[in-house]
C-alpha cells in the first residue's frame, strides 16, 4: 500500500457549537440543514405503511448526570433498508425521508434528545437486524464517538446480527433501544452512558 497521509486529528466540539450545528433548535438566527425530524411531517407515500417512531434518550456522564451540551446524530436506512443517496435539499423544501438527524441535548428537559423517524429496514449484507448509526460529540470528548442503536423488539433478528454478536454478551444490552407506547406514540428509549456498569459500547474504525 502506498504511503497513507495522516488524518487530521480530532478536537472537541466544545461547548459553543449550537449557533452553527443546531442553530434553529436553540433559537439562533441561522438556518439548519438538519434537525430532530428525519422524515417530513407528512410521511412520504412510498413509506405510507411504515411505522413512524420516536427515538429518545439522554447521555449520562461518569457520575450519572445527564449531559446538557452534547450533539447526537442519527443516520439510518429507510424502511426498505436503503440509505438515502439522493442529495438532501433544497433548504426549506420537502425533504421526504432523509434518514439523518441531529440534535443538541440543551433544549429539552434534563438533556433529553428526541428524534422523529421511520423504523429502518434491514440493510443488505452482513446485517440481520435493523439499526441506526449513532454519533456523539460533546465538550469533554476529544473524539467523535460512534455506536449503533438496535431495537428491543427485534429479538430474533438481533440474535442473528453479525456486529451485535461480536459485542461482549454482557454489554449487548447497551445497544438496545427499548420500545414503549407513549400515549399512542411508538417510542424507543436509547440512553448512552459514558462510564459505569452500563457504559455504552463505542466503535472504532481502523483504516
Amino acid at each position: 500500500m502506498a504511503h497513507l497521509l495522516r488524518e487530521t486529528p480530532s478536537q472537541t466540539v466544545g461547548p459553543f457549537f449550537a449557533y452553527s450545528l443546531t442553530a434553529e433548535q436553540y433559537g439562533y438566527p441561522y438556518t439548519s440543514l438538519m434537525n430532530h425530524a428525519m422524515v417530513s411531517d407528512q410521511t412520504p407515500a412510498d413509506y405510507a405503511a411504515s411505522e413512524r417512531i420516536f427515538i429518545q434518550g439522554r447521555v449520562y456522564d461518569g457520575q450519572g448526570n445527564p449531559i446538557p451540551d452534547a450533539v447526537v446524530e442519527l443516520w439510518q436506512a429507510d424502511p426498505q433498508g436503503h440509505y438515502r443517496l439522493a442529495p438532501i435539499g433544497p433548504r426549506n423544501g420537502q425533504p421526504g425521508f432523509t434518514g439523518f438527524g441531529r440534535m443538541g441535548t440543551g433544549t429539552l428537559p434534563d438533556g433529553q434528545f428526541r428524534f422523529t423517524t421511520l423504523k429502518p429496514g434491514v440493510v443488505a449484507g452482513a446485517n440481520a437486524a435493523p439499526y441506526i448509526n449513532v454519533t456523539l460529540f460533546m465538550r469533554g470528548s476529544l473524539r467523535g464517538l460512534f455506536t449503533r442503536l438496535y431495537f428491543s423488539d427485534e429479538v430474533d433478528a438481533n440474535a442473528q446480527d453479525a456486529l451485535l454478536n461480536s459485542v461482549d454478551p454482557a454489554r449487548r444490552h447497551t445497544l438496545l433501544a427499548h420500545r414503549e407506547d407513549q400515549n399512542g406514540q411508538l417510542t424507543y428509549t436509547f440512553n448512552l452512558h459514558m462510564q459505569g456498569d452500563n457504559e455504552t459500547v463505542f466503535f472504532a474504525f481502523a483504516p
Binding site: G62, W75, A126, N133, G140, S141, Q195, F203
Partner: peptide, 30 residues
Amino acid sequence: STILRSPTRPLLLVPEHLRDVSMPVFGESV
C-alpha cells in the same frame, strides 16, 4: 471535562465488511 465524559473500556473495532457505505449528501441548493 474528559474525566467523566470519556469511555473507560476499549472501543470495538468494526471490520470493514460490517460498515456502511455512505453518509448523507447535501446539494448545492442547501
